[in-house]
Design a binder for these strands. Structure first.
Lengths: 219, 219
DNA sequence: AACTCAATTAAACGTTTGTTTGAATTGCTA
DNA sequence: TAGCAATTCAAACAAACGTTTAATTGAGTT
């Protein structure tokens, strides 16, 4: 009988379950959710083909588990950082941007996975064009969006609600896209651009987005 | 014998071929490349299942045809607009951003398809995490990237080459993401944000990105 | 009217997919 | 050690996929 949430789980039972989570996270990051078959996952996790359906019920629920485990702590950390911000002062807008970006960078640098892999999976979730994933991610994103919109409008009072919403969306897009494609920039630029580290990408993102966020005051 | 490029094609022959291109463009925009089967395409195009393989050789080559037909004219228009810019003056940076965005908006508004559908397909190409598509899009993107980097550095001399590359990437990400998700913003914001038109989205993108592009001079 | 060849059609092909089944195995508890 | 539930396993399942084949159609040419 399959294990569902909240039940008592023996130590050996969670072993392969966590191994499945870990491996599928890696593979999903590299090739996307559809392209990775259960056979590939279970082979790499040294588990039986039926293990996924036994432990998670279906491939769909495996994807949900992987994404939730990844996205939820990042969004929670975002809200924590946002609360700590001093909303008065000239650097407030930059702090908002940092509160959005840094949880991703932190998780990527701290995690047991490579930075690159984590970023790819994360941006696959944010920017996913798959209905199943978007509906999943967007279920917990409204709260994050609302809080960031409020903070932005408090710091930049001249920004309307609609514009604030859009700018948060612009930020999310820029972050997701560049986290996923930054390693390809050396190729696409034909060698003329080589990002040395994830931190340097972060710094440039912050500067770029801070300027965009606070745009329009002088007009 | 299948028809390949450059051959003489009778009028009735191109009829179903163009119908296939049109229908698959719509379906790809809505559900992605993998999720749409040849059976769904041919049914909607009122053609036989084998029609795709006959006219295009394979599903892969159909995707290539759809994407190329869509992306190439947009990128060419971008380069045309970029050449027309007066690179001296305070509005130069905004003009660069407009040269990047407007070809998409133009094509979306002019096309026979709905704006929304065009934007979705376009951003599916730009932000695709599918190796087959990225390699296809990135084949013609290096030229665009290089030209925009040069223009940006001419207008903002304090920006290094690496930073300029990154900022173009940020811009591409913000555009692709918001073009795809802007219709969901009314949902995700729980009704608090409703973008009235594609043009208003464009205007806000331009303002946001122009500020981000020219950031850093005062530092 | 006979021939030609591009275009269409229905049917089947071989793979791969996620999922299910029932037996075998493991690990803990009494 | 016996027993029981949780887990693993090999095998098979039905469905969907892209592709191929061979026969048929239909318009244009000689």
């Amino acid at each position: 009988m399959p294990i569902t949430e909240g039940e008592s789980i023996s130590a050996s039972a969670t072993a392969t379950k966590m191994r499945l989570l870990d491996v599928s996270g890696r593979l999903f990051a590299e090739s996307g959710f559809d392209s990775v078959s259960l056979r590939l996952i279970t082979e790499n996790a040294e588990a039986n083909l039926a293990a996924v359906n036994y432990h998670f019920g279906s491939k769909e629920e495996l994807i949900v588990a992987v994404v939730e485990k990844l996205v939820r702590p990042v969004n929670q950390r975002r809200l924590v950082l946002l609360k700590q911000i001093n909303l008065e002062g000239s650097a407030a807008c930059q702090s908002i941007v940092e509160a959005f970006i840094d949880p991703v960078i932190e998780a990527a640098s701290r995690g047991d996975e490579e930075d690159q892999r984590f970023c790819k999976l994360m941006s696959r979730c944010i920017a996913s064009r798959d209905e199943r994933i978007t509906s999943l991610v967007l279920r917990q994103f409204p709260e994050v969006l609302a809080k960031f919109v409020d903070a932005l409008r408090l710091v930049c009072p001249w920004i309307s609600s609609d514009v604030a919403h859009m700018r948060i969306m612009f930020m999310a897009g820029a972050v997701a896209h560049s986290l996923f494609h930054y390693d390809k920039l050396v190729i696409i630029s034909e060698g003329r651009c080589d990002i040395s580290s994830l931190d340097s990408l972060r710094d440039e993102l912050v500067q770029f987005l801070s300027a965009g966020m606070s745009a329009g005051i002088l007009k």
